[in-house]
Structures are given as C-alpha cells and as structure tokens.
Write a protein that binds this DNA or RNA. Structure first.
Lengths: 119, 119
DNA sequence: TATTTCAGGTATACTATTTATACCTAAGGA
DNA sequence: TCCTTAGGTATAAATAGTATACCTGAAATA
C-alpha cells in the first residue's frame, strides 16, 4: 500500500503511487473473504469437524460450496483433510497453524458485526 | 454462533444447534468482504478522496465496481459522498465513524496478509 | 426383506455477480 | 480544433454461486 495523494490548490488530487495490483487487503480478502470461507474457518476453531457436520453448521451454503472452499483452503495449507475411516467413509477437516492464524481477524470481525448489528 | 457438536464412540459427530442463517462472521464478510470493498475502505483512511483517484488507486477494479461499492457503503452509512463542486463536477468520498470502525479489522488483515505472504 | 438413511461427495442447469469495453456531458488546455 | 479530465452509465461476456438431483456402500428401520 504505497499509494499517496497530493492535492493542488483547487482540491484536485493526484495519485502519486497507485497500487497497480491487488494490495495486501485485497489479497487477504480473496482468501478469507470468499463467500462462506470465513464461516468455514470459524466453525473449525474447536477442532476437527466432519464434512456433513460443516454442511449442517453453515445453513445456507451448499455441499458444492463447502467442498470447493475446503479444497481451496486445503490447497493453501490452511486446512487439513484426514480420512479417518473408509467403508463407511469418514473424513474430518481441521485448521492448520496457518488456518488458525486467521482466527484473530475473524474474531474481531464477529465482534464488529455484533457490535454494529450488521445485517 | 450457538452451534455445538457432540461426538459418539466412533468419532461420529452430531451438530446440536446449527446456525441456520448467516452468522456474524458471514454477515460481516458480506459487507467488508465484498470484492474491492475492503480496499476501498482502506484507501479512504487518510481522508476524503475523489472518485477517479479511488479508481486509479485500486488498479484492477472498474469504475462500475467502484461506483457500486461506494453506493453500497454509502447506503450503509459507512461512507459519505460530498459534491464539492458542480460544473466542473467534483465529488469526494470519505469514511463515517461507522466506516472508520472497520479499520482495525482491515489493518489486521493487511498485517496477516503480509506476514504470511498471501498471494 | 425392502426401503430409507447416512457418509462424502459429484453432475447439471440456472441465476447473480464481476469484468471488459465503450460511451456520455460539460469544461479546460495544447 | 482536438484531446483530456471529471464522474459516472450501458452493454455484453466471463466468472462465481445456487438449487436440485444423484452416486456408492454400509447400516438402521419398517
């Protein structure tokens, strides 16, 4: 975020150093701000959860969405997928250290949302 | 976020109290997690900025996106639009108190993004 | 025994959001 | 005169998200 602005005598401003590609905020949001991603991470905060339980916990998200988000997070090393049993298949998802590192942001977001009654 | 989980002897878990509608995290994300919204707010942190300057600062977002996001944020009372001049038209956008209240979250997100080199 | 349920997903079709590109009006500068 | 700037809007195409149904194998229910 290097961009600066200078103002001339007429109140006109000039951008001195625009950020030409997604800045840190934007890059972060693309990860934890994807639809359902934040909720997903947040619901994993207390330890491993199984796929269908996540699905039930996030009323409103489809299995496809959950699946896709979990795969994204796994690919980024934020979530760990473990097959705990095949036949009957059973899988759990849990946060890695990196995944857990986002919890503070999400907790702040939750508090903010509740404080200002965001709907 | 009332949902709880109970585990039986086989590692199977049951959701006791699922959140059936978007929880606080999700509701918050729908506001500041929209594409470009976080960046937009963040770039307003140092005071009023004009439309085309925002457009230049957020390399990658189109005017249409910027316009739409600013209108959303204005409608939520997070941003204030002021016409400082007509003929030649000049408009500035700035954060309200509510808009400013989201800055801590965004600042944390920025630090997180940079610390873990999120791309 | 037959049907339904659950696990963890995938397939298909549809809708909504985002992007790319061009354009608008009025004023000012080269 | 032509080009640029301001603050947007219009149109079409690409991408993302949703709703719904379905798959395999095991186990519980009728």
């Amino acid at each position: 975020m290097k961009s600066r602005i200078e103002t001339d005598g007429y109140g006109r401003k000039k951008v001195i150093d625009a950020c030409m590609e997604p800045c840190a905020i934007e890059r972060g949001m693309r990860i934890i701000g994807g639809k359902w991603t934040g909720s997903l991470i947040y619901h994993l905060k207390d330890g491993p959860v199984r796929f269908n339980d996540l699905n039930r916990m996030l009323g409103g998200a489809t299995k496809k969405m959950i699946d896709q988000r979990l795969k994204e997070l796994e690919a980024r090393g934020m979530v760990l997928r473990t097959v705990i049993n095949d036949r009957p298949i059973a899988v759990t998802y849990e946060l890695t250290e990196l995944g857990r590192s986002a919890m503070d942001i999400l907790e702040d977001l939750r508090l903010w949302s509740e404080k200002y009654d965001i709907r």
